[in-house]
Simulated scan of single mutants.
Amino acid sequence: MLQEHGAERRSLTIEAEGARLAACYYAPIGALHANVVLHGATGVPQRYYSAFASWAAARGIGVLTYDYRDFGASQHRPMRESHATFADWAILDQGAAERALAELAPEGPLWVLGHSLGGLAFAFRRHDVRVERITTVGAGFGHVSDHPWSYRPLALAFWYAVGPVGTVLAGYLPGKRLLLGEDLPAGVYWQWRRWCTRRDFFRSDIGLSLPEPDFRMDGPALRMLTMEDDVVVPPVAVQRYADAFPQGRMEYRVLTPAEFGLPSLRHIEVFSKRATAAWPALLGLPDAFAEEPGPN
């Protein structure tokens, strides 16, 4: 058991279908408010979320983070030998992590927090009866044409030039060598590419690698957040995702940097330490949670 910024961090392994996922559980401090599983964004290792998880734990919210199969601390073989797909991450690994949290935290409410890819697949799964809230951050049915012109050249290169060429040559996406982020299994990159370059997004995979989604799902409160200055998954893509749900079922909110006194929020950086002022909004908490907790 490790101590991180006052929170107890326990390392553990999650058994997923065909994989073992490296995970960390940040135990809640003081009175229990809830426990949340954090499904990360594509190419973002769980360590990136450690400051956020410690912050939440200090406020009575336990947090489970993990790395998807064949990525980050869950990589147990050479990347080019991986057969993982985007759907494996979204369906098998996210489902296993939610079940693991229910076992780790047998009492109290459960929340699901999905960042980008982490928020795209909850309608494909049944959830524990204790799950009372599902929140997505920067998750949307994006298309390459949604990006503003300032970002579009990079997106086009990623999907149509250096990304596919590098993946074919290396047998995986060599993101680090290409200065495009983390390395990714080839199957993850190709399926991700297909979703983001087709107008029907993941529709063509339903019935193949994806089950039929239930956008009318009952139960948990649903919240969908987007950042006004997100150029990776712009608000228009998030709104498109929200529109898949019945009217009134989804709470949709655009977060602006100004409301938190910040110069920017953006897609990945909203979970960085500099965006701490926005963290209560990500979890749907009162602004008072932004203040430093007092001694127990």
Rank of each mutant, 00 (worst) to 15 (best):
H143R: 13
A290R: 01
P153V: 06
G95D: 13
L225N: 11
G62W: 04
V162K: 07
G261S: 09
R80D: 04
V236D: 04
A281V: 14
H5R: 15
A237Q: 02
A290D: 07
G181L: 08
V270W: 04
E107W: 10
V137R: 06
L12E: 08
L265I: 04
Y172E: 10
H115R: 01
R198H: 12
Q247M: 07
E81Y: 12
E292Y: 06
V165P: 02
R274Q: 08
E251C: 05
V144E: 13
L21A: 08
A51V: 00
V270A: 02
F289G: 07
A278T: 02
L2A: 13
V236L: 12
G114Q: 01
S50N: 10
F71V: 12
W192I: 06
G60Q: 11
S54I: 03
S116W: 10
P185N: 05
G119M: 05
L110S: 03
Q239G: 07
A102W: 02
D230V: 09
E228L: 14
R203A: 14
S264N: 01
G219D: 05
G62E: 08
D287L: 10
W111N: 00
L12K: 09
L169C: 12
R223D: 03
P263Y: 04
T197Q: 10
R266W: 00
D243A: 14
P109Q: 00
G140Q: 11
Y189W: 11
S204L: 14
A34N: 04
R198N: 06
E8D: 14
H143C: 11
T42F: 11
A31T: 15
L208G: 03
L156N: 04
E228Q: 15
G62I: 05
T226Q: 05
E292T: 14
A22K: 01
L32S: 13
K176I: 11
G119F: 03
V165S: 10
Q247G: 13
P106N: 02
T85V: 06
F141N: 06
T276M: 14
A100I: 04
L262A: 06
T136D: 00
P45W: 00
R193E: 01
E291W: 11
R193Y: 04
M250K: 01
A41I: 08
V231T: 15
R177H: 12
L12I: 09
L104S: 12
R130D: 11
I206F: 05
V188A: 05
Q247W: 10
G60P: 12
L156Y: 07
A258P: 08
G140T: 11
P257C: 03
C24H: 12
T276W: 03
L173D: 03
G40K: 06
G294N: 00
W195Y: 14
R10F: 05
A157L: 13
R130E: 08
S209D: 02
D243E: 13
R240W: 08
L21T: 03
D214Y: 00
S264Y: 11
